[in-house]
Design a protein around this nucleic acid. Structure first.
Lengths: 194, 194
DNA sequence: ACTTGAGTGAGACAGACCGTATCATGTATG
DNA sequence: CATACATGATACGGTCTGTCTCACTCAAGT
């Protein structure tokens, strides 16, 4: 149901995907509270009993969604260009993800993770991927002398990512490329070696 | 029920407060999904029908909570001290609020506001107070020459506040005074006029 | 102190949702 | 074609929801 067991039966795959699509739309359109066995059944056309067979517990549906759902689609920026450009490219990609559906799923995760340890674990798993890319870029920049040696990389990461989350989650504002550019110039700029 | 109509009857005030306290504990302990007419009734000892009389809709309970609930208890820092110190004091206060119960309520608000416009309106109302203090401090600093003239105050605010939200909401980490100090030194430092 | 009006407590009620079980039907695999 | 399994459809008891009624309590004004 929720483990990493492979599903080979095409019939199972089909219904599972139908329900998952319906659940994703419900989450994005109406929030976590709308992701119910009944509503998933109605929206997907799959029988209600079948929804229960795939996910006995309501939270399992959300967890299955959240597993790959908040995938931020981050790709490593090209090498051989200035550090600031690499960071800008990465943050622009992150901003695009946050502006889109991933932002809504992430919002749902954050709201749920406060009181559900399973969702919190899923959130931690997601966090492990994205920031690692940024950390590697900054660490490489410190090692090759692009950044001043005393730079606090963890804090710098927070300073670069935090405002994006603030814009998206609290202010509900679209994150523009110009905003990312200003952000990098303001925060990363002073840390660059001359 | 939900408007700014004054309640004078002491009997009404008493039951209203009992239910509100119960609702706040439910929200803080078990999340927004737990704030139900039934559970508020059970926890407060007030009859279920009475809970319905005060808040016909379930969302009304939450809105009543959120109205003053995420109060960040920010007080203006003293004047006559360096700008960086004023900012540090204010952010430390904000961090303390976020570490406590206000952080949980804020998390709930953010999660709900994505799909509920009433909650979003309540969130906007809350946002109007806190950041204004920081903005005034920074604006005063720019006017008296503490900050370099070309400083982007809006962005600087995001850079100062964003990491705190990131720590609290995404990382579920306690925000220490040392973190605030590092944050101010890293982000505000380069903007200070020499 | 008495009366009046409003608020509350307790219980009943239908309706909807939840979770499970059953059985007939449809589908994948040998 | 035969078997095993997944699904669809339906039924069931249980719980939650929202509303109503009626007796009781409490805060007013007379």
């Amino acid at each position: 149901m929720s483990g990493p067991e492979l599903i080979t039966n095409p019939q199972v795959q089909r219904t599972h995907q139908l329900m998952l699509d319906a659940a994703r739309e419900l989450l994005s359109e109406n929030g976590p509270g709308a992701v119910t066995h009944l509503r998933v059944s109605e929206m997907s056309g799959v029988a209600r009993a079948t929804v229960y067979r795939h996910w006995p517990d309501r939270a399992d549906i959300l967890l299955d969604l959240l597993r790959g759902g908040a995938d931020l689609h981050l790709t490593p920026p090209p090498e051989g260009i200035p550090l600031a450009d690499r960071v800008t490219i990465l943050l622009r990609t992150l901003a695009t993800s946050l502006n889109g559906d991933s932002g809504r799923i992430l919002t749902a995760m954050i709201g749920l993770a406060e009181w559900d340890e399973d969702v919190f674990a899923a959130l931690e798993r997601m966090r492990a991927f994205g920031p690692t890319l940024l950390r590697d870029i900054l660490a490489a920049g410190r090692d090759d002398g692009s950044l001043v040696a005393r730079t606090n990389i963890d804090l710098l990461m927070d300073v670069l990512i935090g405002p994006l989350f603030l814009q998206r989650l609290l202010h509900h504002a679209e994150i523009t490329n110009a905003y990312v550019d200003d952000l990098v110039a303001t925060t990363l700029g002073p840390c660059l070696a001359e």
